Computed example of a mutant assay.
Amino acid sequence: MAPVKEQIGLIKKLVPEAKKAAFLYCSAEANSVLQVKQARLAAEAQGFETMDATVSESSEIRQVVESLKGRADVIYVPTDNIISASMNTVSMVANEAKIPVIVGEEALCTGGGLATYGINYYRLGKQTAKQAEEILEGRKKISELPVGYQDQYDLIINEDQVKKLGIRVPDELKKTAKFVKTQNKSK
């Protein structure tokens, strides 16, 4: 599970003037719907006005992001397959409108998102291996293991987006962030 609350917390740190947060996601993806529910709770608890910006297919993404111009100060994208596949479009349109995009994982960040707290898949693999070891050695049954969550996440910041949007990264974040660049996905 992505650290949605912490991701929403990045808005206050990177876009402190933001008041209105839009959630861009595919309404047909159950994982996205769940993450947006969590994001909405976290955003409203921090005083943001929230709005949904949903798509049912990738051909709708440009129009939906364009509709946020003048209405949203920041966009949040959860780990969503449809949006991920078109992140370069999201980024291009959001950049034109000077709307930062906080995202749900590192690939969305290198696709053009501004920042995320993301799962470290190496650490996740080690955590999973420990659980598998307990099962294989007969110390535990699968039914006895709780759902595992990471307690440490990587802060990822896209330095290209920082420059394009004129974002000031606080020193406290610079110390722990992994800075990445946008990967060109256009063909």
Rank of each mutant, 00 (worst) to 15 (best):
K178S: 02
K126M: 13
E60T: 07
L10Q: 07
A132Y: 05
Y76F: 14
G111P: 07
K126V: 06
L34I: 08
S143W: 01
C26D: 15
N88Q: 15
L145M: 08
G9F: 04
V36C: 10
L145G: 02
V169G: 01
A39Q: 00
R40N: 05
V77F: 05
A45I: 01
K141W: 01
I157T: 02
Q161D: 02
D154M: 08
L173S: 05
V64H: 07
V65F: 03
K69T: 00
V90A: 14
S59M: 05
Q63T: 15
G70W: 03
K174S: 12
E17V: 11
N184K: 13
A22N: 04
A85P: 01
T89I: 11
E49Y: 04
S84G: 15
A39K: 01
Y153D: 03
E172S: 15
P16W: 03
G113N: 08
T176L: 03
V15C: 13
E49S: 13
Q127I: 11
L124A: 14
Y122Q: 12
K13W: 10
D154G: 06
R62A: 15
G104W: 06
I82F: 05
D154Y: 09
R40G: 00
A18G: 03
V64E: 03
A53D: 07
I142F: 03
S58H: 07
G111C: 10
S27V: 03
I156N: 07
A132T: 06
A39V: 00
I156W: 02
A107D: 00
I102S: 08
K140D: 02
Q152G: 05
T182L: 08
I82C: 13
A28V: 02
M87Y: 14
A22M: 07
A177W: 06
V90R: 10
E159Q: 14
L24A: 04
L145W: 02
E172H: 15
V77L: 12
K98V: 00
E44S: 12
D160N: 15
V36A: 05
K164R: 15
D52A: 07
K12E: 00
L165C: 13
A43R: 05
K187L: 14
E60S: 09
L24W: 03
G47F: 03
E66P: 05
Y117T: 05
E49F: 06
I157K: 07
A115M: 07
L41R: 09
E17L: 10
L108N: 10
T54W: 06
E137I: 04
K19S: 10
L124K: 12
I119E: 00
I8C: 03
F179L: 08
Q131V: 01
A97K: 12
V4M: 01
K175E: 07
V77I: 11
L155W: 08
T79I: 06
D73K: 12
I135R: 01
A107F: 10
D73N: 12
V4C: 04
I75D: 02
Q127K: 14
V64M: 11
L124H: 07
I83N: 08
I8M: 02
M1K: 09
T116E: 06
A2F: 00
K13M: 12
Q35F: 01
E49L: 11
A45W: 07
V180T: 10
A21F: 04
I99S: 04
G113E: 01
S67K: 06
M92N: 13
E159C: 12
L34V: 09
